[in-house]
Amino acid sequence: MDRIMHFVFWMLAMLSPLNGVLTTIMFLIVVDFITGAYASLKAGISLKSEKIGNTISKFFIYNLVIISAYFLEKHIVNEVPFLKIIAGFIAITEIKSILENYNKIYGVNPFKVLKGLLNQYGFKETLKQISEKENKEKV
């Protein structure tokens, strides 16, 4: 039992630099599951164990891919930021899924709203409006 505890402690120490990345990805997976379940229930579709199994497999697969990218970057090719690239793609995938679920729940597509704002006011004008709102909130 003592050897197992030493091994677990060693693994946690090796993976401690990944704490923030793994926590963020796990949070996004949980939010995606919650919004997806809510969207399904709102559409009258019952939750299936297959969908829950997909979420559980995402936990393991995404974490293994991120850990692999970390070790690849740290010990083999440290010039290429594999961890940031792969974690970024996973995060974008989960955020896209969350926004799709949001569209199913509320009937509002955030991508189309953003595109409409950019087309209506132009990109520079939109950024100006956002910064003005942030400045007002700070005051």
Rank of each mutant, 00 (worst) to 15 (best):
V31P: 01
Y62I: 10
I61G: 03
D32F: 09
F59Q: 01
N54M: 12
A91V: 03
T35S: 12
I95A: 07
N54Q: 13
K48V: 13
I29Y: 06
E94W: 01
T55F: 01
F59E: 00
F82D: 10
G36E: 09
F33D: 02
N63A: 15
A37S: 13
I45V: 15
I85G: 00
I45W: 06
I95F: 03
I56W: 07
I92F: 13
S49W: 12
I92G: 03
I34K: 00
E100W: 02
S40C: 12
E100M: 08
L41D: 09
E79I: 13
L64S: 15
T93K: 15
N54E: 15
I92S: 09
Y38C: 11
L99F: 11
A39S: 10
I66V: 14
G44N: 04
T24F: 14
I66S: 05
F89Q: 08
T55A: 14
Y102D: 07
S68G: 15
F60P: 05
I98C: 02
I67N: 02
K58A: 13
Y62M: 13
M26P: 03
L99N: 00
K96A: 14
I76S: 04
L47H: 00
I98G: 04
I61C: 09
G88W: 06
G88D: 04
F33Y: 15
L28D: 00
F71W: 02
I76P: 02
I67H: 02
F71A: 04
A37R: 11
I34L: 11
K96T: 14
N54F: 12
L47I: 15
E100F: 08
